[in-house]
Simulated assay, not measured.
Amino acid sequence: MSGFDVGARLKQLRLRAALSQRELAKRAGVTNSTISLIEQNSVSPSVSSLKKILDAMPASISEFFAGEQSSQEKVFYRASELTEIGDGQLSWRLVGARRPNRSMSIIHERYPPGADTGDDMLEHDGEEGGVVVAGTIELTVDGEARLLTAGDAYYFDSRLPHRFRNVSDNECVIVSANNPPSFSDGSGEHHHH
């Protein structure tokens, strides 16, 4: 895993947005201590809580992990060059995180047994799809749950509430793509009509 400094990056973006720890916590609906613990790297935030905090600024997950944009457009990436954006339990490795003007995200996802994206279902603009490469995943989309195994695939509108859970005893590996490239539309607002 890359030694990405989550705490320093959060602080950098928070200061850029001119928010105090308290103000950011209030907007994101988390406790004050959560922000300071994350900035001190005392706790590692889950994907869903990091997303809530970033939405409150607003900033996108991909912007968060891109750090300083590098301008060159790489074509080939070694496994070690993918950017880890998982939460310490599940691993999501993003292809081309620093590529300028990316129009999609391709992610190599690994879910150890018991890994779960969380009770608070993910919802964001765009669409996503993927193919299960190994293992079994339980995918719930808009209230419908399916067990998918190696070779099975999915494709859905990301505005539908969704959740990935590995209910098996083996690691599950998925290669997924989503569009637009962030996990957030950046406005912090979600319109449901």
Score class of each variant (00 low, 15 high):
residue 151 G to K: 13
residue 44 S to Y: 12
residue 169 D to Q: 13
residue 82 L to A: 10
residue 47 V to H: 07
residue 140 T to P: 01
residue 158 S to G: 07
residue 123 E to I: 07
residue 38 I to F: 07
residue 193 H to C: 03
residue 69 Q to Y: 11
residue 71 S to I: 09
residue 46 S to Q: 06
residue 53 I to Y: 07
residue 13 L to Y: 09
residue 178 N to H: 15
residue 26 K to R: 12
residue 110 R to F: 06
residue 56 A to Q: 10
residue 32 N to F: 10
residue 120 D to C: 01
residue 28 A to K: 01
residue 167 V to I: 14
residue 1 M to S: 11
residue 170 N to I: 06
residue 21 Q to V: 02
residue 26 K to N: 06
residue 114 G to Q: 13
residue 168 S to N: 07
residue 59 A to S: 12
residue 176 S to N: 05
residue 87 D to F: 08
residue 33 S to A: 12
residue 48 S to D: 12
residue 9 R to N: 01
residue 78 R to W: 03
residue 30 V to Q: 04
residue 149 T to S: 15
residue 191 H to V: 12
residue 126 G to C: 11
residue 193 H to T: 05
residue 131 V to L: 13
residue 192 H to E: 01
residue 36 S to K: 02
residue 25 A to N: 03
residue 187 S to E: 06
residue 159 R to K: 15
residue 190 H to N: 04
residue 58 P to M: 07
residue 184 S to Q: 10
residue 188 G to Y: 04
residue 133 V to K: 09
residue 46 S to P: 05
residue 111 Y to C: 01
residue 31 T to L: 05
residue 95 V to C: 01
residue 77 Y to H: 11
residue 136 T to D: 08
residue 52 K to A: 14
residue 34 T to G: 03
residue 90 L to R: 04
residue 39 E to Q: 13
residue 179 N to F: 01
residue 131 V to A: 03
residue 56 A to C: 09
